[in-house]
Design a protein around this nucleic acid. Structure first.
Length: 426
RNA sequence: GGAGAGGUGGCUGAGCGGUUGAAAGCGCCGGUCUCGAAAACCGGUUUGGCCGAAAGGUCAACGUGAGUUCAAAUCUCACCCUCUCCGCCA
């Protein structure tokens, strides 16, 4: 949520930066300003009457305690009370309208974010490693998974529907091993505290990080309870400190968490339909930081480096792109995407998205810290995948496939795979 | 799910429908004292909105939301949460 004061004081700047995103949100700025003005006028009026009522009510109390008649004043205040109720009702209406609009406005891009329309305009920041070369035609993971009997898409479909994965045998163990590998890396080497959060999330938490109210159709929702399946651990973990005031010496706080992620992928029908590149349920290890506003951009660079470290240790070629204004997520002010090379796809796959949301989420979720001067300020919230598992899995299979159809995984994973690096057809 | 008890400031814990934004204690911050510290003593110590250049003024908040009343932490209703017992269950 944007700061209403920012819109009030700098409507033109806000309008411009929203326009840079290319979603037409700038049109709401004038409406917001008008509602804000109306709201303040109504509050001023209401407050005046409340002050009067408070004063006269005290007089009434004093009169009554002396046994004197106060019926005139009481009748008068009855009328004032009705006026207050009417005014407050209008305030509530305007408030609700204002809030509804504000909750639907995306964050403003950071000045360092390049203007652009879509993914084609995202500048590449750097590359690491090289595309692996094969003496044979590298296969896509879905063929490998079937041949090796480690992935069973038809049966996953039988159980749930399209867009689900069933891992089997060495395939299941690899998934489990990767989760442990990632959590160990971030907790032991990058200073993150491991969290295992609830996967069912209430509405307030979903609003806090920005999934709701705008993206309701992207989420799985329970029918009988006001609960949603977590689309990412960003939601439960960022909401850990909702409605809290942290001490400045607690910052920065680093959390990481493994969760499955559930996404309806509404609107993505027909895209990436084969294999496990776009699915309704995937595993992910997520990093979340609660940072001091002055250092949050340094934290973003560090977090991105932490995510890159995963791919470096696994020897996977990747590139980092900086999302342009038109391609950024709703809550983010600046985002780096990390894309790993998948030889079987002949394409880069997004395995991590590292974002600084600044105070956009913390304002929604009311997460503050007391600074050195004793002033309460909103923390900056960052989140980054470290990393998404399904696509990492794709890159691993496709990169490390051998001519004989087996897979020889990086040595570093061996301890997580019972000492067995190779996956062969049995 | 059923029965009962309860939700007040960082914590413990008072609170009669009317000078209670809220006693008291603890904690914390500042000061006095001290070579220094402790103790003691003094002072301070919730958050948000609105008006204002500021000083300041004012409104709101005692789980949440409605209601009764001139006036609600205090009365009524609904919901949420916690605890105890029972039931069920991995």
């Amino acid at each position: 949520m944007l700061d209403i004061k920012l819109i009030r004081d700098n409507p033109d700047a806000v309008r411009q930066r929203l326009a840079d995103r290319g979603r037409g949100d700038e049109a709401a700025v004038d409406k917001i300003a008008a509602l804000d003005q109306e709201r303040r006028n109504l509050i001023t009026e209401s407050d005046k009457r409340k002050a009067l009522r408070n004063a006269v009510s005290k007089e009434i109390g004093a009169l009554k305690s002396k046994g004197q008649d106060a019926s005139g004043k009481m009748a008068e205040m009855k009328k004032v009370g009705d006026e207050i109720a009417a005014a407050d009702q209008r305030v509530a209406q305007v408030d609700e309208q204002l809030r509804a609009i504000l909750l639907g406005i995306p964050n403003l891009p950071h000045p360092s974010v390049p203007a652009g329309k879509d993914a084609a305009d995202n500048p590449e920041v750097r590359q690491w490693g090289q595309k692996p070369e094969f003496a044979f035609n590298p296969k896509p993971h879905w063929e490998m998974g079937e041949a090796l009997d480690i992935l069973d898409f038809p049966r996953a479909t039988k159980i749930s529907g399209s867009g689900f994965i069933l891992y089997k045998g060495a395939g299941a163990r690899l998934e489990r091993g990767l989760i442990s590998f990632l959590l160990d890396l971030h907790t032991r080497e990058h200073g993150f505290t491991e969290i295992s959060p609830p996967f069912l999330i209430n509405r307030d938490a979903m609003i806090g990080t920005g999934q709701l109210p705008k993206f309701e159709e992207d989420m799985y929702r329970l029918r009988d309870d006001e609960l949603y399946l977590a689309p990412t651990a960003e939601v439960p973990v960022s909401n850990i400190h909702r409605n809290e005031i942290l001490r400045h010496d607690q910052l920065p706080i680093y959390y990481c968490a493994y969760t499955p992620c559930f996404r309806r992928e509404a609107g993505a029908a027909g895209k990436d339909t084969r294999g496990m590149i776009r699915v309704h349920q995937f595993d992910k290890v997520e990093m979340v930081k609660f940072a001091h506003p002055e250092t949050s951009y340094d934290e973003l660079e560090k977090m991105t480096a932490n995510a890159e470290r995963v791919l470096q240790l696994l020897g996977l070629h990747y590139r980092v792109v900086l999302l342009c204004t038109g391609d950024m997520g709703f809550a983010s002010a600046k985002t780096y995407d990390i894309e790993v090379w998948a030889p079987g796809q002949n394409a880069y796959l997004e395995v991590s998205s590292c974002s600084n949301c600044e105070d956009f989420q913390s304002r929604r979720a009311n997460i503050r810290f007391k600074d050195k001067d004793g002033k309460n300020r909103f923390v900056h919230l960052l989140n980054g995948s470290g990393t998404a598992l399904a696509r990492l899995y794709v890159a691993l299979l496709e990169t490390y496939q051998q001519a004989d159809g087996s897979v020889l995984l990086p040595e570093i994973l061996a301890p997580y795979l019972g000492g067995e690096r190779a996956i062969r057809h049995r």
